[in-house]
Design a protein around this nucleic acid. Structure first.
Length: 260
DNA sequence: CTCGACTCCTGTTAGC
DNA sequence: TGCTAACAGGAGTCGA
């Protein structure tokens, strides 16, 4: 699913949509417009204007419009960004392998005949005008020893829940956190404020390393643990049967043998 | 303030 | 073969 890495790919896709005049809004799903915004507002905001900049914070893609407004795009669990019909990511983990235009929840036509669309089978994404980014924590590509330490210091919550808290670190989702903690040999249920100096050192190293590596490999589903995240899966490091349980409403897999 | 529980959403899949 | 129910997780809300 789209975590920070995938949305960074989408940002690069979005660069192809910059400085092209918007002619019309082809589709807009009302479920995609929460809180006081209707399709007419969105049309008024976009038509005859251009996107002039594509930025990202955590899992939100922010497109600046030539009229100084900004459009925030969230992709939920299964959303992809398409520009001129193609995406940086062909198949998304846990999403459909099919690719139907009727799943376009927002579709924008440019005057040159091209388009920008969010294609999202499960409709968990959203579009927001002038999204508030202040509630988001450190972006996943900017994590430092200091920011990680601050995130963990004052909380007795499970370490995994803390890493996935977007107000603390923005951009880590379920798959990335499972992979990072697996590599770091840390049990996801450990209390955040109880990690040793050595635990934190390993966690920092593997957080930065995993994000960088999986960005190069093509997405958050490219980790070593991923294909074993199934019931009955075995740890690819030591062969132990993986534990499966729930943290913060998310299915979690960890190795009882080497994650302590 | 913290934090678990619940809700939304729908394509896929397991099981009968 | 066709049906139902469980499952997936990002994010917001609510109440203890």
């Amino acid at each position: 699913m789209p975590e920070g890495i995938e949305v960074e790919y989408y940002r690069q896709t979005a660069l192809k949509a910059l400085n092209r005049k918007i002619a019309s809004i082809k589709t807009i799903d009302h479920k995609y417009l929460p809180g006081g915004c209707n399709p007419a507002d969105l049309r008024d905001l976009l038509i005859e204007n251009c996107f002039i900049e594509a930025e990202r914070k955590g899992k939100i893609l922010v497109l600046s419009i030539s009229n100084h407004y900004k459009l925030g795009l969230r992709f939920g669990m299964t959303g992809r960004l398409l520009v001129d019909g193609s995406s940086a990511i062909d198949v998304l983990e846990y999403s459909s392998k099919k690719n139907k235009p009727q799943w376009d929840r927002l579709s924008i036509k440019f005057q040159d005949g091209g388009s920008l669309s969010i294609r999202d089978p499960r409709r968990l994404g959203a579009v927001q005008i002038n999204p508030n980014l202040d509630t988001l924590g450190t972006d996943l590509y900017k994590i430092t020893a200091r920011s990680l330490s601050v995130v963990l210091k004052h909380s007795a919550r499970p370490i995994k829940a803390r890493l996935m808290d977007q107000s603390k670190i923005a951009g880590l989702g379920n798959l990335l956190t499972d992979e990072i903690l697996w590599r770091s040999s840390i049990d996801p249920r450990r209390q955040s404020n109880m990690l040793s100096r050595n635990d934190k050192r390993r966690l920092l190293h593997h957080t930065i390393q995993t994000i960088s590596e999986l960005t190069d490999l093509g997405g958050s589903h490219m980790g070593n643990l991923q294909k074993h995240r199934v019931t009955g899966g075995l740890c690819p490091r030591d062969g132990a049967p993986l534990n499966r349980y729930n943290i913060g409403g998310r299915t979690t897999y960890s190795c009882p043998k080497h994650q302590k």
